[in-house]
């Protein structure tokens, strides 16, 4: 009993912080989501309007488009980051000259603030002064203009995200790879397993929890990305890069529609949870049959 009390006492600060900064704001957003509230309008009080905000959003073409572009962005960015991050992690498992230097350089994007990343990439991709359009035009005759070409703008936001966040994936997967025991690999080599067999049947199953944790973190980040994209494209051209975080920002701040913005935020939270849960079920959740055998 005494140890239980000490346990709760030690947990108390975390629980209090979690409640104050996690649960209370969530309940408040939930409350606002069922109200019409424009605190800077003629009537600044909250007016209960039931599920009208949610009813509005399922018919809102801008919201649905933003969700579609966000899902596309998250899929391409996270998938590329995991694949490239894995290969880089495997590279860092080997010894080569300048490994320490390369590892440091490779990790640098992580410490740059997203807003700075966005502004640097904007400078690099501005048609008149940017280095990327200049070399693309000089070497390949390709005219890159992200203010005019929606596909180019979309691809550039994905590339920027990959550049910024792949080091995080690399570090996580590197930590997972380093901690793997050597015996299963030696045994597989003695038994004559090929490299692809070792990858699919030993490495991948053993680092699956690390991959899942990384994908969770990156997926949640990608679904709420705002500042980088805001700096690079401002959501344009048209709505080609108006991802959901940016859409919420535009609804809440310029339009000051707090109720509707809260409803959209809740749906984004819901989508994020559903995707993470589906990934969990697909990759690590114990199956009933598997447990019966065990």
């Amino acid at each position: 009993m005494r140890s239980n009390k000490v346990g709760w006492l030690l947990l108390a600060p975390t629980i209090v912080v979690l409640a104050l900064f996690g649960i209370v704001p969530f309940i408040y957003v939930l409350y606002v989501g069922f109200h019409q509230w424009n605190p800077f309008g003629a009537n600044p009080s909250m007016i209960y309007n039931g599920a009208n905000n949610f009813r509005r959003l399922v018919f809102d073409a801008e919201f649905l488009t933003a969700i579609w572009y966000t899902l596309k962005f998250a899929l391409f960015a996270v998938l590329s980051e995991v694949v490239i991050g894995y290969f880089l992690a495997q590279l860092f498992m080997r010894e080569f000259p300048g490994k320490g230097f390369f590892r440091t350089i490779h990790t640098l994007p992580l410490i740059v603030a997203p807003i700075v990343v966005g502004s640097v990439w904007r400078l690099m991709t501005t048609p008149s002064i940017g280095v990327i359009p200049y070399y693309l035009r000089t070497w390949f005759g390709f005219d890159l203009n992200i203010g005019r070409d929606p596909n180019a703008a979309f691809i550039l936001t994905v590339i920027m995200d990959i550049w910024h966040w792949t080091p995080l994936v690399t570090l996580t997967l590197l930590a997972a790879l380093v901690s793997l025991p050597k015996e299963p690999f030696e045994q597989a080599e003695i038994d004559g397993a090929s490299r692809s067999q070792i990858f699919w049947h030993i490495t991948l199953p053993m680092i699956r929890p690390a991959i899942l944790a990384t994908v969770f973190i990156r997926l949640m980040d990608a679904l709420r990305t705002v500042d980088e994209v805001w700096m690079l494209t401002g959501g344009g051209p048209g709505a080609a890069t108006r991802y959901i975080g940016l859409h919420i920002w535009k609804v809440v701040f310029p339009k000051t529609d707090y109720g509707y913005g809260s409803a959209i935020s809740l749906i984004v939270l819901y989508l994020t949870l559903v995707m993470c849960w589906l990934l969990y079920v697909a990759l690590v959740a114990p199956r009933r049959d598997a447990r019966k055998v065990a």
Partner: peptide
């Protein structure tokens, strides 16, 4: 527990 969901 025996339920209709495929996971524990």
């Amino acid at each position: 527990r025996r339920g209709f969901l495929p996971i524990v």
